[in-house]
Design a binder for these strands. Sequence first.
DNA 1: AATTTTATTGCAACTTTTTGCGGATTTGAT
DNA 2: ATCAAATCCGCAAAAAGTTGCAATAAAATT
Lengths: 254, 254
Amino acid sequence: MHPIQTQMLKRERQAFIMKQINLHNRILSADLGLMLNVSEDTIRRDLNELAEAGELVKVHGGALSKSYHYDYAPSTTYALSEKTVIAQKAATLIEDGMFVILGGGTTVRELARLLPVDLKATFFTISLTTALQLCDHPTIDVIFLGGTLVKNSQISVGGEVISRLNEIKADLCIMGTNAIDTECITDTDLEAVQVKKSMIKASKRSAVVTISEKLGSTQKLQVCELSDIDYLVTDLPADAPQFLGYRREGLVIL
Amino acid sequence: MHPIQTQMLKRERQAFIMKQINLHNRILSADLGLMLNVSEDTIRRDLNELAEAGELVKVHGGALSKSYHYDYAPSTTYALSEKTVIAQKAATLIEDGMFVILGGGTTVRELARLLPVDLKATFFTISLTTALQLCDHPTIDVIFLGGTLVKNSQISVGGEVISRLNEIKADLCIMGTNAIDTECITDTDLEAVQVKKSMIKASKRSAVVTISEKLGSTQKLQVCELSDIDYLVTDLPADAPQFLGYRREGLVIL
DNA sequence: AATTTTATTGCAACTTTTTGCGGATTTGAT
DNA sequence: ATCAAATCCGCAAAAAGTTGCAATAAAATT
């Protein structure tokens, strides 16, 4: 990153700035000043002009690419399209007559929304929003596993839920997760972790649904080992390179 | 989860925070401070700004995803203004430290919405929507009484709920009703009626909330005699002529 | 080519924004 | 009730931005 020697025209300089922006999505005024060997005042004037022309977004300290994803979609589910893909894949795991335990989270809710209309199965859930979604389905049975409600995540936890789960032997359990790496599934809330453990124990098979962004992340509390789950469902194709290290005997990646 | 090295623009930092929030639904200020290598004060200021912009929900210690918040749609509620009046009157029955059982229906949900923000009490409910509404309250405890869900009313019924209710001795029970006349409270759904009976039995005192329109109507299944309830809360003033025939020893009309 | 005009640039003084810190205060959990 | 963590408040330093202006460079005009 050496300073440019020769005298530059304003046009060239601004072209150079745009190149940097498109390359790195961000740039600091101070860095540009050094690179172009002009005062930061000049840089700022350039950035303001380019911002005015809509070429970039000026912020305190530098500028960001217009395509930079700093504008978040409000009031809609994050990464909805990915979650829809996941939900559709996960839905194929459910067959008529099954007993299925569903957890909380927006991905599972999306699954609940996309269940085939003619499916006849029995669902247990600990999530208020998932339960509400399931109530919209005409032919399934829905059983809510009551308990103390965690306000943030709107799921029920506590001994009540766990002892109920101990009485159940379901065919399948589908849950989201906060974090997953090649070793284990982890989460942040102790109570929720307890319940998830029980959900897995109460099911013949367990599926974890998650957007691929979460692959490789870790939280403080362990739900289970990766080997304890039977299906991993993400938005990626099953043969994606991101699954390196995740593949093993007995784990089906969808 | 390694700290970020290079100097970050504020906007980038906030975008990073939003990503974490959307990914993990909740995040601690302390963790963000470590990840981004800035002071917690800065994180808090960011979180407050994002909260102000409606991008997330700020809580003590960190922030939550906005996607977990019950979006109440008041426009769809029939006779909302009457129900609001009722809810406000009924709310006066609840005092700090009480154990309260809440039923389903839009009037009760409205009550849940209008609880004083500083109320400290424990609520039991069988209604998904009432429970969701209660989850928005900062200081109360909420316990959902699980069971088989009735899809159109989104309440749980069945032996499960009833045996749970048998274990509870609450101070107050507040329920809506389908019909009420000078003799008794009646309803249409057998399962729901069973649960209501148990709710009343599980409470020292019982309140029925209903819009005055329903006064004088009758359904096929009896929940209880009018004398079994302690409070009748409607949109009418307590001395309204419509209450002729309803007044009796031990029934307070609000 | 000389000259006028216009635009660009850097500088200095001043304002605003951002950030971290100490201490008072509130909050949440025990 | 008690105690530690989280938050709030004000402040001060550093960084970034703004403005006016003079010097200089580029462009236009004669």
